[in-house]
Design a binder for these strands. Structure first.
Lengths: 243, 243
DNA sequence: CGAAATCTTGACCGATCTCAACTTACGTGG
DNA sequence: CCACGTAAGTTGAGATCGGTCAAGATTTCG
């Protein structure tokens, strides 16, 4: 278990409202895609209800069972969203990058969080309270459209992942994951795994041992080359996707 | 393959606009949870942009690859939403009942459908065009809140299902599914499977053979009793959930 | 630099899939 | 309403994918 997990997660190193902080809020709000089409005056109004909070690496942002009453928008850093299965097994659901948000699940339903969120590195987050957000959405309906667009993308991804887990075998799931990492034209078809292999295993519904073995197998087949722990070169994408 | 699948899915038996149909639209709109808090005048405006369409059992409503430009709201009947894996395996994603909707995924992103929708029985559906819907959402922001609430529930479900597929074994997934079927206090703890075992298998990421064997096993353990093909009595829910 | 976590590799085993044969349920048409 | 054909469901035997456990190598980070 991570050392910082024992830290009380209410002891944030920084928790400021818009008018008494060092201007971080502005940058926070500015980068959020769901807000970035608004005018300056509206932005300022939004900044008025957002709160910027900093989390240290490993710190828990929320836990399953917590009352969900805020939207969390990542300003800087990385956030792991994971669940525990009924048997207590941890499963990585997704990783948030700056501009991504979470916490919306229960925002509209007044329920409890069903997942955990923790900072993978030192992270800065903007939060908006449920009621403040609802006011904003009612006042500026165009924000809703953005939020819904984001929701629909998330839903799409979640359902695609579900299908993969249900129908593809481990080989294929790994291959598809590698192919997705390639997306943004990287040099030499070289990708950097965005997470530890342990996390990757849980994300793909398998074990670190199997990941290790399958990657070796793919290398033997000549489809990939294992450069270092986190770096992999994709040599034959087409064959990879035909597995 | 279903016989009706060969039928051109543009040949609907009934496709009427609000002002020239037998009043079905009103009932359609009325039952939709995302609209049901509105006033009468607003309802009428909404009915003005909705279209009611009837589908015969087995008919395809949309296919993966189709341009997604409408929201589909089920008025009557049942709709199967399913995907095909890269290997061509079919996986059931969810079943829509009256009041549920689909098609929102690409509604905000102008992309293509990634799933298939087909009528499980004779079904009546209301559709709203993308642009009409966006107008409505901008005009009546409270609808957006309802839609987002529904989205977040869907997302929650999808992520829960993902976790189960990734971390639980087949026994457990079946047990959890049975337990969920029990939800609404049914007589004698007797449940009726909402789908064929073939579909159930694909929903749970397994095969009909395994479903069959596991159910028999659960009966042997005394946790359930197989009454008929689609009826199962839950005898020991607690033990069932401890598998 | 050293402790702790992650990763790798091997051996083994068991859950689940596959294939095949058979039975049962269901919808259609006479 | 029954008979028939097709799809769904069941059961068995065998194969295998992938999980588990354990030991050792490597990486990470204070």
């Amino acid at each position: 278990m991570n050392k910082e997990k024992t830290m009380n997660n209410n002891q944030h190193t920084n928790c400021c409202h818009h008018d008494n902080c060092s201007g971080n809020n502005e940058s926070c709000v500015a980068i959020v895609p769901i807000f970035n089409h608004l005018e300056k005056s509206q932005m300022e109004e939004i900044m008025g209800v957002t709160h910027s909070v900093a989390y240290k690496k490993g710190e828990v942002i929320y836990s399953a069972g917590d009352q969900a009453d805020s939207l969390y928008i990542v300003n800087m850093g990385r956030v792991r969203i994971y669940r525990l299965s009924e048997a207590g097994k941890e499963q990585l659901l997704r990783i948030l990058k700056p501009g991504d948000f979470t916490g919306e699940l229960a925002l509209f339903n007044e329920t409890l969080h069903e997942a955990y969120a923790s900072a993978m590195v030192d992270t800065s987050i903007c939060t908006v309270k449920r009621l403040d957000l609802q006011d904003l959405l009612l006042k500026y309906p165009s924000i809703s459209l953005k939020v819904m667009a984001e929701f629909s993308r998330r839903l799409e991804r979640a359902e695609r992942q579900t299908t993969r887990l249900a129908t593809e075998k481990v080989d294929t799931r790994i291959a598809l994951f590698l192919a997705e990492c390639l997306e943004v034209g990287s040099m030499n078809n070289e990708i950097t795994l965005p997470m530890s292999k342990k996390d990757l295993a849980s994300y793909l519904g398998t074990t670190p041992e199997t990941i290790s073995r399958k990657l070796y197998e793919l290398e033997t087949l000549g489809y990939i080359r294992l450069i270092s722990n986190k770096k992999i070169q994709i040599i034959d994408l087409d064959s990879l996707l035909l597995i």
